[in-house]
Nucleic acid binder design. Structure first.
Length: 422
RNA sequence: GUGGGCGUAGCUCAGCUGGUAGAGCACUCGGUUGUGGUCCGAGAUGUCGCGGGUUCGAGCCCCGUCGUUCACCCCA
């Protein structure tokens, strides 16, 4: 009887050895700057009440209207796998009253997110993001710091071929005034049916259209930046000034469009140039009304999400991954049962002393075990057999040049620590 | 969701106008009773993604399906 193989779900990216080491490294580099700035971990559920996203992210967005993994649980509740991180953070902050203490609340998160899209290079149905949120204060200096933290993360990866784009979506009054003029402008354009329909749902979408003919049509469209209220404009000026002071390069992109409804004020995106169609490696912005809409107090907040999968692709494209050394220090080759017992106990002791130790398992010939030791990249090898056990001495072999050094088993730990300068 | 490309050994891929499946690398063992890398020799491994159809005969042609990939769309 032979069983059929089972396939993994469509569109998921799995990280397996040896590439998984690079993934882990990228994720750590991206989040390190947040930890350094006093942001603290929030570990949240990957599934939430569907209403959290329909209300928080916005029913008209593509993310909510056609990309969510939604299902009914056994209790008849409508559940959705989280498509983004901010709404869940806000829900937890409100529910656990984190906003009742010192503001701003500064938190970071890391994990899987889910969108039911057609998979493509850099676009997966389960993807990884790290993100931060600073909740409770509307201060342009926080906007600048949040951007600086994301910027630092990409710098940590050694990336160069990307740009930071920023804009301001202003306050409610700014957007309302602009929307009237923009709608009037679009109405006069000669658009195909699908495009006109998209414009109706979100007129800003047309700014993002990749077709040159649409770009030409939109060249003279009214820009939201020209409709900013005095306070919004002053705030945006301050953010830019802070960024310049921190020597963070940016370009203003007045045509930037974000896919989540809750963004207001300062909004930004990191775009990489070597990634094909899915070029956004991170983005975020301020959200004024989100907390209130989710049943909390009326507090502003700002945050970002960085794509770990895409950051890894970018680092590969730029060849900026470090040649990290994940190999073992010592490979122990026991010959026979009593030798195996000694290998297991010796390995315990050596590992406790910080020496990365592997054991050759299975009843294989010495030559095969040596080959395995070679493949593992271990720097030293020790063969443990009857003669070593009776004499109490082993030959410590340095793999780089094959030199053998006779060492007392009791001295092995100190000898290795010295040789590895631990 | 729409459109195009591609699915043959663990990996990268060959496979003629349809005639019954191969290479390189990797792997295992041996040459060298207990010391790797090079070299030499031997060996194992495939439901040709899956299901139908056409045919005397299908890896090859046709249909469907699943996966993958690229673009649209969307975004991390």
């Amino acid at each position: 009887m032979k069983y059929e193989k089972i396939q993994g779900p469509k569109g998921v990216r799995e990280y397996l050895p040896p590439e998984s080491a690079a993934f882990e490294w990228v994720r750590e580099q991206l989040i390190a700057p947040a930890k350094a700035a006093g942001y603290q971990l929030m570990e949240l559920p990957v599934f939430e009440d569907t209403n959290l996203f329909t209300r928080g992210v916005g029913e008209s967005t593509d993310v909510v209207s056609k990309e969510m993994y939604t299902f009914e649980d056994r209790g008849g509740r409508s559940i959705t796998l989280r498509p983004e991180g901010t709404a869940g953070v806000m829900r937890a902050v409100i529910e656990q009253n984190l906003d009742r203490g010192q503001l701003p609340v500064k938190v970071w998160y890391s994990g899987q997110f889910f969108r039911a899209e057609r998979p493509q290079a850099g676009r997966y149905r389960q993807f990884y993001q790290v993100g931060i949120e600073a909740i409770g204060l509307d201060d342009p200096a926080i906007d600048a710091e949040v951007i600086a933290i994301a910027y630092r993360g990409f710098k940590n990866l050694g990336l160069r071929n990307y740009r930071l784009e920023i804009t301001s979506l202003g306050d409610a009054q700014s957007r309302a005034a602009h929307r009237i003029d923009l709608m009037a402008f679009i109405k006069k354009l000669d658009l195909d049916e699908a495009t006109a329909k998209r414009a109706e749902i979100n007129p800003l979408r047309l700014f993002d259209d990749k077709r040159p003919e649409v770009q030409t049509l939109m060249a003279k469209a009214p820009l939201l930046l020209d409709y900013l209220s005095d306070s919004s404009r002053m705030s945006f000026e301050l953010v830019q000034g802070y960024l310049r002071a921190m020597k963070i390069d940016f370009v203003i992109n007045p045509r930037m469009v974000r896919g989540l409804d809750y963004y207001t004020g300062t909004t930004f995106e990191f775009v990489h140039s070597d990634l094909g169609a899915q070029s956004g490696i991170g983005g975020g912005g301020r959200y004024d009304g989100l907390m209130e809409i989710l049943g909390g107090q009326s507090l502003s907040g700002i945050g970002f999400g960085l794509g770990v999968d895409r950051a890894l692709l970018a680092a590969i494209a730029e060849n900026s991954l470090p040649a990290e050394d994940f190999t073992s220090d010592l490979f122990l080759i026991p010959l026979g049962e009593s030798a195996m017992e000694m290998a297991l106990t010796t390995a315990q002791e050596l590992r406790a002393a910080g020496i990365r130790t592997e054991i050759a398992f299975g009843d294989r010939a010495l030559k095969g075990a040596m080959k395995a030791a070679d493949k593992s990249g271990a720097r030293y090898v020790v063969v443990l057999g009857d003669s070593e056990i009776s004499s109490g001495n082993v030959d410590l072999k340095r793999m780089s040049d094959g030199v053998l050094t006779s060492v007392k088993i009791t001295q092995l730990r100190d000898q290795l620590r010295q040789a590895l300068s631990l």
